[in-house]
Amino acid sequence: MRRSEVYLSCLGFLFLLLASIFFHARYQQAHAALRLNEMARIVKELELTDLCLFTEARYTRHPSQADLQTPFQDHPMAMEHFPSGSFVKIPENIGRNTCYEALDQ
């Protein structure tokens, strides 16, 4: 077998894998519907507001319920204390003349 044929076969196989990713994703989405619906039901029943991703601090457990300035309460540009806080984007209206109340709007 020529080198070009081996290479093109490998490339073809990789494209096949790429296509199968989409089929797999579609298949998984159909199967996940039950799990997602179950979670949505629990959210509705228990009146939950947040995903349970980071339980290390109050404001990281319920970021939607915390004040927006909470992770930056020491200083508007202060380094974040908890590791998961490093995911959160600094509020867009932050700046030298921004008062704390405005961050919460």
């Binding site: 990713i21 797999h24 994703a25 998984q28 989405q29 996940a32 799990r35 997602l36 349970c52 991703l53 980071f54 339980t55 290390e56 990281t60 908890f82 590791p83 998961s84």
Partner: peptide, 16 residues
Amino acid sequence: LKGWSILYPSFRLTPF
């Protein structure tokens, strides 16, 4: 993602 958390959810993401 775990950071300093003791409790961490075990979940498998749906491929979107």
